[in-house]
Amino acid sequence: MSKVIVVTSGKGGVGKTTSSAAFAAGLAAKGHKTAVIDFDVGLRNLDLIMGVERRVVYDFVNVINGEATLKQALIKDKRVDNLYILPASQTRDKDALSKEGVESVINELKKEFEFIVCDSPAGIEKGAFMALYFADEAIIVTNPEVSSVRDSDRILGILQSRSKAAEDGKTVKEHLLITRYSPDRVEGGDMLGMDDIVEILSVPLIGVIPESGSVLQASNSGNPVIMDKDSEAGQAYQDVVARFLGEEVPLRFIDVEPKKGFFQKLFG
């Protein structure tokens, strides 16, 4: 049975595409045949984050319109076996995504892939709605910041009331992924802590990604950050994938690293 997973947030710039790329690459690296779809029609970026921007020939909208076959549009990743990318169109607008069109592409992908990861655009308009409509599970990407938490709550409301699962009387399994987390600032009282965010949104936590320079380095070079096995962010994403696949993995990088001693603080 294949699974459709939407990576969504409501708010922009919180790390949806970074997380989609990392999550899909992580699933594939563990031997699961995975396709990741960019739903941000008009503003595609998943191709760039995954380093395949120069290999895009056909896109998602071409497939929906019958201008290309799915096979022609899917880009096979050269670093990880089992990983395929379906880019968004750069020239059309989000109305190019029809419910029937998206459904037929997802159904065709289901025949061949174990996991279908849908990278949602920001907002709550058509593109975001289409990305979440067919989802079996959802990863809600949230920054420890008031507007992001509020928007996540809005998206959760839409998942629970307007997704296909909701229409069929079922539920979308929800996972909370906190990104750009700074344990130092949480301890200093400047940043919402992970427990507070979980309490406010009441969604089970699948992982916490620390604020890390390696995320920008990864996007600069077009490699999903999960491949940077030395970086904290990369390791935290690996934990996310393991938890998603049912392993029990303790949270890492959530506490302040010991630095100054008491006397150093007092006189330093």
Binding site: E145, V146, R150, D153, G157, G189, D196, E199, I200
Partner: peptide, 21 residues
């Protein structure tokens, strides 16, 4: 003595989200 703004954020969010629901 510095103000804990994270607590303030939590309180505001809880009130707001309860209201919106």
């Amino acid at each position: 003595k510095k103000k804990n703004t994270a607590n303030l954020a939590k309180e505001r969010l809880q009130i707001l989200i309860a209201h919106e629901h």
